[in-house]
């Protein structure tokens, strides 16, 4: 098997949500002495990206996305054992997510949290109907790089603006990037309140989150 064959097999194993195959490919890569980071970045990660695309188009479903992510996590664990020590503990970032107080909509934010975990974020999901100060407190205590808030109603989206203010008052706005989403939220709103990013859907939220933490 060539290196390209391994990379393609890694991608296909994740898309097929086949954990056994993903583990087998990871072991083959190690046996062939391939660069583990390259196999992760150019094999398994593109596979997960394709999973996200399929999910966004409605041709792959959330449980399958979870199974695919578990396949990727299992394979990556094998590859990570062969990474240099300084790269082993690497994670994409720490994120605090929640739905603004007064808003009980949870599904979209839950999907974002799930996909972010899949992509290596440590996610502190505060759930729904979250008091604004809790976002700030959790961001401080967890050392988060990202604070994401969701609002599904025009009456709760104003909480996202207040959250920007509270983060500034707490003196941590410069240390964190903020993301906003939810059915009533738009790029215009994100720009208006000074949020760092807006995402239309879960897959885009992950891509934006990665961009923000990678600077």
């Amino acid at each position: 098997m060539t290196e390209n064959d391994i990379l393609e097999a890694a991608k296909q194993a994740v898309v097929a949500a086949d954990e056994e195959k993903a583990i087998e490919v990871a072991r083959q890569a190690v046996a062939l002495g391939l660069d583990p980071l390259r196999v992760i970045n150019e094999g398994f990660t593109p596979g997960m990206r394709q999973v996200g695309d399929l999910f966004e188009r409605g041709t792959m479903f959330l449980p399958e996305v979870i199974i695919a992510s578990e396949a990727m996590v299992a394979a990556v664990a094998i590859l990570e054992e062969n990474l240099p020590a300084e790269q082993k503990e690497k994670q994409a970032g720490i994120a605090v997510l929640g739905t603004i107080e007064g808003d009980v909509h949870d599904i979209g934010k839950g999907i974002v949290a799930t996909l972010m975990r899949v992509y290596g974020f440590k996610v502190h999901d505060l759930g729904r109907d979250v008091p604004l100060q809790r976002f700030v407190d959790e961001a401080k205590s967890s050392g988060a790089q990202l604070v994401g808030s969701s609002a599904l109603m025009t009456t709760t989206m104003v909480g996202q603006k207040q959250l920007e203010k509270l983060l500034k008052e707490a003196g941590i706005r410069e240390q964190v990037k903020t993301m906003v989403g939810g059915a009533v939220v738009t790029q215009y709103w994100a720009d208006k309140i000074g949020a760092d990013a807006y995402a239309e859907n879960a897959q885009e939220a992950v891509a934006k989150a990665l961009e923000l933490v990678e600077g």
Partner: peptide, 22 residues
């Protein structure tokens, strides 16, 4: 929404899987 979100992924009606229908 325009397609049925697959939160379950396997439920059917009249033999048709509901997730992902347009």
């Amino acid at each position: 929404a325009e397609f049925v979100l697959g939160m379950h992924g396997q439920v059917t009606y009249d033999g048709v899987r509901l997730a992902g229908l347009y």
